[in-house]
Nucleic acid binder design. Sequence first.
DNA 1: GTCTATAATTTGATAGAC
DNA 2: GTCTATCAAATTATAGAC
Lengths: 195, 195
Amino acid sequence: MQRRHEKSEQTRELILATALQLFVERGFFATSVHDIRRAAGLSIGSIYHHFPSKEAVARALYNDLVARMTGMVESACSGHQTVRDRSRAVAELLCQATLESPALVTFVLHARHREFLSDAPPVCSTRPFELMQEMVRDGIASGELRSMDVVSASLALFGGVIRLIQLALDGVLQRPLTDYLDEVLEAGWRAVVSE
Amino acid sequence: MQRRHEKSEQTRELILATALQLFVERGFFATSVHDIRRAAGLSIGSIYHHFPSKEAVARALYNDLVARMTGMVESACSGHQTVRDRSRAVAELLCQATLESPALVTFVLHARHREFLSDAPPVCSTRPFELMQEMVRDGIASGELRSMDVVSASLALFGGVIRLIQLALDGVLQRPLTDYLDEVLEAGWRAVVSE
DNA sequence: GTCTATAATTTGATAGAC
DNA sequence: GTCTATCAAATTATAGAC
């Protein structure tokens, strides 16, 4: 019975992993359920046994990946005290994730979810982004960052890094992502640091 | 004969305008040619007379809008000498365009063209972005900006503003876009200014 | 140039055997 | 739980009258 459950869980994960790859490669609408079936080596029936619809696959994927990214950002934050160190840790984490699991980052950060997930909240109002904003809020309160609007400060501090990642995912960077990170991060810091 | 040509051109423009609105509202794949037909008050035959395929409509739209945005950025640049003034003019222009023609900016800046235009170059390697990068290159050469990598500097200077516009288009800003612009722009400037 | 009617495929999803 | 066979609807695109 435990065995059965594990097997079922494996199939579910296979469906999600296959769908993620195809959604990122071709987009949600250009991927049919039959494409997923073929790539996963399963049958249509099996897929519809695990998920009620194609949209439900995307929804499960979205929730799983946002949760994973939330955990990553939380652990990066908790290892440091100052905003300076925390923001660096988060930025490095995002870049590392982009290199190691581009599909994850692409789907969370780069896909237009509203186009296919009728009720998904915009990515930017999701937990990982909230954490980054809280970090900035704390930094302003403690005086480590200059006194300015929290949203503006978040954009100034992380805007460059996020754009950097978007460019990397679009494949338009000539040099490796990490070559730019330090300079962009340092610049973001100059933009918001007190004095 | 001139009249006929004008009428034909009008129909073409109507198709493009209608398609733009629907593509931005629901996305390319969630918009069928019949949706465009219905919204434009035309027949399928008329649409296929002007464009060989739905993809061709999107392609024409993409080229038209990138050209329009190129013109806007060029004229914003040409009115000023320093990078400081130019970058401000471009940022203000982008924000103004976002408010006045959100569909234009959404389609150019915010859509995943590669998903439906097989051969479209990434937006970031498009003329308006080249212009912004040239501006930064000049600023570094003249000493107005600190000596750093051109791509990193572009990201640092404009990353916040572009992210700001993305948030505005996603509808997640609580206050009007223009409320944030000055602070984000000023922060981007601190990030790259010499000294 | 614009229309209606329709062809040819593909799509998301279901039924029911095993 | 997994499979095959199949459906109904929607999709892109074409044909041919006017």
